[in-house]
Design a protein around this nucleic acid. Structure first.
Lengths: 353, 353
DNA sequence: TTGAAAGCGATACCAT
DNA sequence: ATGGTATCGCTTTCAA
């Protein structure tokens, strides 16, 4: 049995063994489209069992034109946010009998293009784009469009494609408002480095909250969406603004406010927040006592940081569900934008508990 | 162009457009097996470009019997360790023109069985099993064996399958020895709850180091391989052994040693270590001052915990590489066990720096 | 160097 | 209720 493994059982063998035609085998395997008498069905089932028959998905795909497969393109599956997103997508797809091909681009547009092409060649039934780095180029987009397969963009708006996102702006506002509720009046921001043209929604949300409360803008630090990036941003926020400003600069009141060390920071991603926390610890600052922190994302990692992070949690499951159902539904209005509400998860880093 | 997208271009269209036979199109697309004159080749290439032809992978797979796809089965892609493993596998597979179907089992044997079956039906060219929870059952294993496709088990030995693992035992020993080098004499252990029958190698490695140094065994706490599990284990290690032992128990010297609070802990996974750190922080213990910690795994998360974790890093890339090449090489000796050395990464939690 | 044609395994229509 | 068979798109042998 260990080496006699080469025997590939086809639907022909089954038909022969059961003494029926291949059509009948097909009918019982697929429960249709024609009815089969219980007795023959049992014979076929038995044959399948005995021979260990397993339908060849490639053949089926060729015939029916569907692979029951989705492609998922993301920058880095090692990043917890994408890992969790991917898992949610896989889970949702699995409930519909679909399977997902996950690929990483390492944020390289050339790689992204290649991988998308490959996925298309593999006849995926739908493509999920979760690569925030840049929009696909013109040719790439055209290629996608006339490939005829449904595409959704996750967590970023893409022109000409239906997109599914968390409510970035409202979510960020929620987080900042919570900080304001704790009495903070100088709230800094750690943002990613936006390369694409679309508006940095989380930044807008932060500003929304500040403006609504009549508060000045705290300092902003921009860095990579990574733990290291957050660390750098955290240090930047602390060191460059810590010493009292020279008199001549202090004249400009607004500027002064903007450069004084904040008492709270809103961080636009978990990963960065973890880095910020490290910078804060190294500086010997008490969190949340001397510096409160709220982050966006809410991956599992945020729950066990020290102190545990208060976060604005992304609706990953909702987004994944929508992505899959959208891909399946073959809706004809091609472009639409869906957003899902975030959830404020209060832990220790903001000052609660 | 947006809606006239239905035209599926086949190799027939290309042949017609280029005024050649379909065979020739195949020759140029695959660079063989026959040579094509430069002029015809150019015509074909042009036709492909103009028509936007993309070879149908399903048809190719049916014909040649290879999908250029691997299946990866793991308990939870949301777990950073598996996320990083999966990424490494995807990366390695991509360099060989392969793509990988990732599926999660949530540690449910029934789900695992279903997903493996599905992957097999999809004609994957190889299967990577990274589900440490339990060994596949007898029927499952038989199914795998006579499916005729190569299988490798990652990070766990599986009977009847070639396995690729880190050097768990030697690695754990390395980590504990480092702690001993720092002068610790009472070193506790946080382990996972082993459900399978094979020996808990990391525990053996911990013991190896202790025995070699003539040190008594510290306390052991067993818990789930999760952050929460680590937290629970950490508390257990602290609270149950903190108060001085009653006199009658103290009589048994060895027992006493085993139950006194350790000064260092070796944790068998990053995730658990993060939980242990939380427990330590909550108890107000200084790390590494009052309690040193070294963990096994070395995911990215460990670098930014507080304090940064000293870890025994798993050779994920090496394991992934070997897995892929093993799947491809079609070696005939079916069962073999490969192990790869771990690497000690020193950060702050052990007392270095 | 190029072309014709036989399948790969499954589906489902059209007969019976 | 069941069977025969054309077909999906591609690869590759064999013949020209």
């Amino acid at each position: 049995m260990a080496k006699g493994s080469r025997e590939v059982v086809t639907r022909n063998d089954v038909a022969q063994y059961a003494g029926v035609s291949t059509a009948v085998v097909s009918y019982v395997v697929n429960d249709g489209p024609r009815a089969v008498s219980p007795r023959t069905r049992d014979r076929v089932l038995e044959a399948i069992r005995v021979l260990g028959y397993r339908p060849n998905a490639a053949a089926r795909a060729l015939k029916v034109g569907s692979t029951r497969t989705f492609g998922l393109v993301m920058p880095d599956g090692g990043n917890p946010l994408y890992a969790e997103l991917a898992k949610a997508v896989e889970k949702e797809a699995a409930t519909r009998g679909y399977v997902v091909l996950q690929t990483n681009t390492d944020s390289d547009p050339a790689v992204e293009k290649r991988k998308i092409s490959d996925l298309l060649a593999r006849q995926v039934d739908g493509l999920i784009l979760a690569t925030p780095t840049g929009e696909p180029g013109a040719t790439e987009l055209a290629e996608l469009n006339d490939s005829g397969i449904p595409v959704v963009a996750l967590n970023r708006p893409v022109r000409g494609t239906t997109s599914i996102c968390p409510e970035y702006r409202a979510g960020a506002r929620l987080g900042v408002e919570h900080l304001i509720g704790h009495g903070h009046e100088r709230i800094g921001l750690v943002m990613g480095i936006e390369r694409s043209a679309w508006s940095p929604e989380r930044e807008l949300g932060w500003r929304d909250a500040l403006v609504a409360a009549g508060l000045p803008e705290g300092p902003i630090a921009r860095a990579e969406f990574s733990r290291q990036g957050g660390y750098d941003a955290g240090r930047q926020l602390l060191t460059t603004t810590n010493p009292p400003m020279p008199v001549k600069q202090a004249k400009v009141a607004k500027l002064l406010k903007a450069t004084e060390r904040p008492t709270a920071i809103f961080v636009s991603s978990d990963l960065q927040a973890v880095g910020v926390l490290r910078a804060l610890h190294e500086a010997g600052l008490d969190v949340p006592g001397e510096m409160a922190v709220v982050a966006f994302d809410g991956t599992a990692e945020s729950e066990f940081s020290w102190p545990p992070l208060s976060v604005v949690r992304q609706p990953l499951e909702a987004v994944a569900q929508k992505a899959v159902s959208r891909l399946l539904d073959e809706v004809d209005e091609p472009v639409e934008a869906f957003t899902y509400p975030t959830e404020l998860v209060l832990r220790a880093s903001c000052g609660c508990n």
